[in-house]
Amino acid sequence: MKVSLFITCLGDVFYPGVGKDVVEILERQGCEVEFPDAQTCCGQPAYNSGYHKEAKKAAKHMIKTFDSAEYVVAPSGSCAAMFREYEHLLEDDPAWKERARELREKTYEFTQFLVRVLKVESTGAVLHANATYHSSCHMSRLLRETEAPFRLLSNVEGLTLHELPNKNDCCGFGGTFAVKMGAISEQMVEEKVEHVEETGAEILIGADSGCLMNIGGRLQRGGKPVKIMHIAQVLNSRE
């Protein structure tokens, strides 16, 4: 099975290790992973800020880039969800809308792809740790994927997962929201950090680098000893 990896901006620049884990896991499952080099950004920063002319440019470019892909897999619920918004964004242009529909149908978030398409329940990972999991809003509410990460994590040997209190609450990232509404975002991320601490976990796992960057940055600023890990890193752990 051929998989085209959509690495996302954050994944490419700040967390390349996550991408390496994704590649390794997928290859171990027998997938042939390709990386369309022309890929850029999904356009979400412009889309969410109301700059739809610019978002359309990004959307059309990404549609073209992944045109020949069999499956598109992204290690981010939010960026994968953005691919699924393209149809709505390009509504007035029937030809592009149709291409956007094709892209939507073959796009998956990484854990979703493992569980729903590859029917994988365990990646054979081992990680002896107490952890908690942050369900990102776009993954659960826009992609409607709430099970896949938990199914995979429940089969990680040695991992004890503690439920995060108020787990459905947003962490306050929201892309440009984090800088545009800094004061409000600060309250949200602080509340999230408090909940993470309540679990007593030493690791916070997530499937969206944006949320992890936000919560992790706040944890670090407060000198909290909680480490952040992308779910791909956990699923590829062998210690």
């Binding site: 700040f14 967390y15 984090a178 800088v179 545009k180 800094g182 975002s185 600060e186 991320v189 960057m213 936000n214 992790g216 940055g217 706040r218 670090q220 600023r221």
Partner: peptide, 9 residues
């Protein structure tokens, strides 16, 4: 505005 309240990677 980001680094006012949290570290940036």
């Amino acid at each position: 505005d980001w680094t006012n309240v949290r570290d940036f990677p």
